[in-house]
């Protein structure tokens, strides 16, 4: 079951790169996100799975689809005519190289960390509070930059 999910993640991500129609590429990226969210659920990380499905497969894909519909289809870029076979050949070479090295990678030996019985809310707000300040800073930066970009467009459009 896990094999099917992981293979689905890889295959739909590859479709997102190879498909020519932009909308189909974004939808296949969305399906890949949903499958990755289910993988997170099975790894006992439900909150990461929820975030992956609702934010990545939801919010970011909606942003992409809004942009594509704003730009319209007359902005399709003529991609270089490299056939799909080149990608598949490169991917197979890459897979062979990785599989040869993958069993030589160091095995992870965990020292058991105490205090991991805390809930996710406490970890996020109490142990990593500086990260929350960081998230606030990132959101401020994003909001102000978007406002600046939008107002520049309005000023140049007049």
């Amino acid at each position: 079951m896990d094999v099917i999910l992981l293979a689905g993640v890889i295959i739909f991500a590859a479709f997102a790169v190879l498909l020519k129609d932009m909308l189909k590429a974004v939808i296949s990226l969305m399906i890949s996100s949903i499958m990755l969210g289910i993988v997170f659920f099975k790894l006992h990380a439900p909150y990461a799975g929820v975030f992956e499905i609702s934010v990545v497969a939801g919010l970011i894909m909606v942003l992409f689809i809004m942009t594509i519909s704003l730009i319209g289809s007359d902005a399709d870029v003529k991609e270089p005519a490299v056939p799909v076979a080149v990608f598949i050949v490169l991917f197979l070479i890459f897979s062979v190289v990785i599989m040869l090295r993958i069993f030589c990678l160091p095995q992870v030996s965990h020292q058991l960390m105490s205090g991991e019985q805390m809930r996710i809310g406490e970890v996020l707000w109490i142990c990593r509070t500086f990260d929350m300040v960081g998230q606030i800073s990132v959101i401020f930066a994003g909001v102000f930059v978007l406002l600046a970009v939008v107002s520049a467009r309005r000023r140049n459009g007049k």
């Binding site: 990593r128 500086f130 990260d131 300040v133 960081g134 998230q135 800073s137 990132v138 401020f140 930066a141 994003g142 102000f144 930059v145 600046a148 970009v149 520049a152 000023r155 140049n156």
Partner: peptide
Amino acid sequence: AIVLTADLFTMYIFIESAGIASYGLVSLGG
């Protein structure tokens, strides 16, 4: 915040935040 923290991941978050602010300042040229 990048220089005042002792945690690697916090440093990464603030590097990203400063980066987003930099992209915005570049695009203010109009």
